[in-house]
Design a protein around this nucleic acid. Structure first.
Lengths: 197, 197
DNA sequence: CGTGGATGTTGACACCAGCCACTTCAGCCG
DNA sequence: CGGCTGAAGTGGCTGGTGTCAACATCCACG
């Protein structure tokens, strides 16, 4: 039974590190994520992660890429329709609320200015998911057909609005407002619907 | 002339620390702000800051409060008018771009979950500045008079949208889009104007 | 079998936040 | 003027961190 007790080689350390990083972020927030703590959680020495990632940022970038991909999946799962813009915004922000581990990492300070091809690809894919999901909703609310660039602008705006809701919520910048008055994803979503008027 | 060379007491360390923190953040980003580096920049021993701030977070909170106040001032300086919503958004985001030191600290991970009365007050004041600046613009675009809570919701949305633009820009999440298609403050601003349609 | 290369470990260095005891000095009280 | 006191700054220490270099282990392929 303890054949898996303490083998010298972990066997699946790379993915284990990624999972533990998310779980750790869930518990202690983005500040508490230390590479050593992640290694500890994976039951491995402090420097073992360096066999799989060149540095801490690379691990976080990988986690962020996976998180973005999961958001894209969530967006694709929700059925798109004429009212898809509000639901997309809702889906986006509720994912970040439901998965605080990813949320903490995705836009963490440590990742600011990190160049990672995988992360860049994930960002582009996420944008694609927004675009696909939201397109019919945009098309439905506008009279004349939109140019492609207009659609892109609209989607970028929608993502920005959703991101802003979450950021202000996370920093509790609207702490003084009663819940009923704070911007909810759905409100902003329907708000975003009107941008092509 | 070197009477001011190395006096044992700095004389104005508290404000000096705040200034150096901003300058440091400007150069090295939010990750590089160590209390010791700030102390070093102020020409003082690593522990001197603890005479003026209980811990690092308290210093950062103070800086953030000042930054928010400066944004509020900027909002109040711009003349408000019927088109004030786009210009408010522009003012907000351009401040963060122009003052990356404040930007790095204002929504830094380290300040997440920090309870500071001064910071909370600054947040509320900043919201007040948004409200004052943007109110005429909102009133102008709506037919019937708005309830106070509706105005508040509208302002919270506007702030969220502006914040989202900046956050996505900072993380370069829309790196794959040409500049012309990325959401600009002005676009989002006029976008926000329409929410009461 | 044996060995090479991937995977983990140990040790070390420089840095950090925060605690403590100590020193310096300015201003006040006599 | 001279001594005291408390605020401001210093240096030492602990526990923690990211990262590098050298070493140990072990699986897979010859």
């Amino acid at each position: 039974m303890d054949a898996s007790e303490k083998p010298y080689h972990h066997g699946n350390l790379r993915t284990a590190l990624i999972e533990e990083a998310v779980k750790l972020a869930e518990r202690v927030g983005s500040q508490g994520i230390s590479l050593r703590a992640v290694a500890r959680a994976a039951g491995v020495s402090p420097n073992a992660p360096y066999r799989h990632f060149p540095n801490k940022r690379a691990l976080l970038a990988e986690v962020a890429a996976i998180g973005m991909a999961e958001i894209a999946v969530a967006l694709n799962e929700v059925s798109a329709g004429a009212e898809s813009l509000p639901t997309a915004t809702e889906t986006y922000t509720s994912f970040l609320v439901r998965r605080p581990g990813y949320a903490a990492i995705l836009f963490s300070d440590e990742l600011a200015g990190v160049e990672s091809p995988a992360l860049n690809q994930a960002r582009a894919d996420l944008f694609g998911a927004w675009l696909r999901h939201v397109e019919p909703s945009i098309a439905a609310t506008v009279a004349s057909p939109m140019a492609a660039s207009e659609k892109i602008v609209a989607v970028a705006r929608a993502w920005s609005a959703a991101q802003g809701i979450y950021t202000l919520r996370r920093s509790d910048s609207l702490h003084f407002l009663p819940d009923t008055v704070r911007p909810s994803p759905r409100q902003i979503g329907s708000f975003a619907t009107r941008l092509q008027a």
